[in-house]
Measured scan of single mutants.
Amino acid sequence: EDTPTSDDLEQFAKQFKQRRIKLGFTQADVGLALGTLYGNVFSQTTICRFEALQLSFKNMCKLKPLLNKWLEEADSS
Rank of each mutant, 00 (worst) to 15 (best):
Q15W: 11
A33R: 09
F12C: 03
K64I: 06
L23G: 04
I47T: 02
V41I: 08
L37R: 12
S56V: 00
N68M: 05
D2V: 07
I21E: 12
W70T: 00
A33Y: 05
N40G: 14
L63W: 03
R49H: 05
F50S: 01
D29W: 02
T36W: 05
T46V: 09
D2I: 13
A74I: 12
N40M: 09
K22C: 11
D29V: 02
Q44S: 13
Q54W: 04
L9E: 01
L67G: 00
F25C: 07
Q27A: 10
P65I: 07
C48E: 15
C61T: 07
Q11I: 10
G24V: 01
T5Y: 05
K64E: 05
T36R: 13
C61N: 09
F50V: 02
F25N: 02
A13V: 11
F57Y: 14
L67T: 04
F25T: 02
W70C: 02
K69P: 00
L71T: 00
G31R: 04
S76H: 13
A74D: 06
L71E: 02
Q54Y: 01
Q44N: 08
T26F: 05
Q11D: 09
D8I: 04
S77M: 07
G39A: 05
V30I: 06
K64P: 00
G39Y: 03
C48L: 08
K64F: 06
C48P: 09
S77N: 07
L9F: 12
T46I: 09
I21P: 01
S56M: 01
C48V: 09
D8W: 04
W70V: 04
N59L: 14
L34S: 00
G35R: 13
A13W: 00
N68G: 15
E1M: 14
A74M: 10
F42Q: 15
S77T: 15
Y38F: 11
T5Q: 10
L66V: 10
N40D: 13
G35T: 14
F57E: 10
S43D: 15
E1V: 09
K14Y: 04
T26D: 02
R20M: 00
I21M: 13
T46W: 05
F42K: 08
F50A: 01
M60I: 00
Q11H: 13
N40Y: 12
E1P: 15
G31E: 06
S6A: 15
G35Y: 08
A28E: 14
A74C: 14
A28V: 06
L32F: 06
K22G: 08
F42V: 15
R20E: 01
S6D: 09
C48M: 15
Q15I: 10
L55W: 02
N40F: 07
L23W: 04
A13H: 03
Q54K: 14
D2L: 10
F25E: 01
K22Q: 12
C48W: 09
V41Q: 14
T5R: 10
L63Y: 03
S77Q: 06
S6I: 13
R49M: 08
F16N: 02
Y38K: 06
K64G: 04
F16I: 01
A33P: 00
K14S: 10
V30Q: 00
T45F: 09
G31D: 04
F42P: 04
A74F: 08
Y38M: 05
L23I: 03
A52I: 02
F25K: 10
I47R: 02
L37G: 05
F50Y: 04
W70F: 09
L9R: 01
L55V: 03
G39S: 05
S6R: 15
F50L: 03
K69H: 07
K14F: 05
S6Q: 15
T5M: 11
G35K: 14
D7N: 03
L67K: 02
G24S: 02
S76I: 08
Q15V: 08
T26H: 05
E51T: 00
Q44D: 12
S43V: 02
T26K: 04
K62V: 10
E51M: 00
T46K: 04
R19A: 11
S76R: 14
F42R: 05
L55M: 14
L55T: 03
L55G: 02
E72N: 09
Y38H: 12
A74E: 10
L71I: 04
F57M: 11
A74V: 14
K69W: 05
A28L: 07
L63S: 02
T46R: 04
Q27K: 08
R49C: 02
G31T: 09
L67C: 03
T46S: 08
K17N: 00
F25G: 00
K62A: 11
N68P: 00
S77W: 09
K17P: 02
L71K: 03
L34Y: 00
L63A: 02
F12H: 00
V41D: 14
K17W: 01
F12M: 06
W70R: 02
S43A: 06
Q15N: 15
D2A: 11
S43N: 13
P4T: 15
Q54V: 03
P65W: 07
T26L: 01
N40E: 15
Q27I: 06
K69A: 09
F57T: 13
A74T: 12
K69Q: 13
E73M: 07
D75P: 09
R49N: 14
I21V: 10
L71Y: 07
W70D: 04
S6M: 15
L9W: 04
K22R: 11
L71W: 03
K22T: 08
D8T: 09
R20D: 00
G35Q: 14
L23E: 03
Q15E: 13
S6P: 15
E51C: 00
G39L: 01
S76Y: 08
Q11L: 11
E72L: 13
Q18T: 12
K62P: 00
T3Y: 12
G31F: 04
E72V: 13
N59Q: 13
L23S: 05
V30L: 05
T5A: 11
L37F: 11
K58E: 15
D7E: 10
L9N: 04
L67S: 02
R19Q: 09
L53Y: 13
E10W: 14
A74L: 10
T26I: 02
D8L: 07
T36A: 12
K64Q: 10
N68D: 07
L32N: 15
D7W: 15
G24P: 01
I21K: 09
K14E: 13
L23C: 05
L37C: 11
N40L: 07
F25V: 06
K64N: 00
G24L: 01
T26N: 04
A28Q: 09
A13F: 01
F42I: 11
V41L: 08
K17L: 02
E51Q: 01
E72P: 02
